[in-house]
Nucleic acid binder design. Structure first.
Lengths: 202, 202
DNA sequence: ACCTGAACACCGTTCAAGT
DNA sequence: ACCTGAACACCGTTCAAGT
């Protein structure tokens, strides 16, 4: 029975399966080794089936990147919400963020380095004060630091951007091999955090 | 006469012409729109001529990325060597670096985001104390700051890495559209620099 | 509704043949 | 030595045809 109607095996689930399998293939082989032919073969469908759900490979990849970004964002959010100590939460976020990049270098490279992302203007829109992204939580944590007189009172969005930039820069340079101090990552973590904090705390 | 022997037009210069034209095409159309067919058509050679100089497209692209990286590096170096004030030189470097990224987003994305760069281990090798890259000069400027008692005496390589990470992170987030504060770039510059400096100066 | 598979225009790469 | 152009195996995308 089961093997008979494999025609409708992906009925309703193909769309999601395409994303998940793409995420796996990006991490194992890199983005540029993903082809619709390999992807659909892995899923047991014909290659034109993709076009029922996405208008082109580029649009599929965009959705994959969005999914990858949300994966990272979920990690960041839960870390930022865990515990009371504001500074400790910021420090932990940095560690989790950098660990994500080190553990998923191809995915990280893809979600942040892709040319298609130039026109993005969703989840991370800083102007959208009502959002619920990791960045929004980061801003909220900084504002909590303002109220508790732990963090210097400057524009929290700019402060969040500075913190994010530092962490993002470290992650990027690490996975691209521009930093060759694998044994010294902890020291880099400590110094970057100290540098950030001494610059923004009261 | 001239148009007659176009067969040897690129005699000896094709190798370099491939790099230069690739750099232009990356910036105007993005890396993924570069094909050997378009590239060689633009240069007036047959497409297999490329293989006289590079074993594959990937290896050509690697050389292009290296050339792009050196372009940025040259900018950085001259900025770091200009003037006496240590802090001002660091500040100027940041501005020049970020400007380069904003002016050449596709190139910047390519030289830093490419999957091929995982195995890189040349110019930026921090362990090579004798190098002459922008990063090495940055370390030297920091050491000058140590001698002049302007900058806190910690491992200069780690300090350089922290500074570079911040600037690189800002550049990356800006060109990927994760930061939507175009009108506020100056404020971001100021705050990030202030954050760095207040964290590392005496 | 959703899937199939042949067809099309592209791509990187190879290679025997030219000068 | 260096270049040519046909050939090969791949790719994304389209579309008439199936169920």
């Amino acid at each position: 029975m089961k093997s008979k109607n494999h025609i409708s095996y992906h009925h309703g689930s193909l769309k999601d399966a395409l994303i998940q399998t793409s995420l796996e293939m990006i991490e194992s082989d890199g983005l540029k080794n993903i082809t619709l032919r390999k992807l659909t073969k892995k899923l047991g469908t014909s290659r034109s089936a993709v076009y029922r759900h996405y208008d082109s490979k580029d649009i599929l990849i965009k959705a994959v990147i969005q999914a990858g970004f949300e994966k990272l964002d979920t990690n960041i959010k839960s870390t930022l919400l865990e515990g009371d100590d504001v500074l400790k939460r910021l420090y932990n976020m940095g560690k989790v963020y950098i660990s994500f990049a080190i553990d998923n270098p191809n995915l990280y490279r893809t979600i942040f380095g892709h040319e298609l992302m130039k026109e993005r203007e969703e989840s991370c829109d800083i102007n959208d004060a009502d959002g619920d992204t990791g960045f929004h939580i980061l801003v909220a944590v900084i504002e909590e630091g303002h109220e508790k007189n732990i963090i210097k009172k400057e524009d929290p969005i700019l402060q969040a951007t500075v913190i994010w930039s530092m962490i993002h820069g470290i992650s990027n340079l690490l996975i691209d091999g521009h930093i060759h101090i694998q044994d010294n990552i902890d020291a880099l973590n400590e110094l970057s955090f100290k540098t950030l904090i001494n610059g923004i705390k009261n």
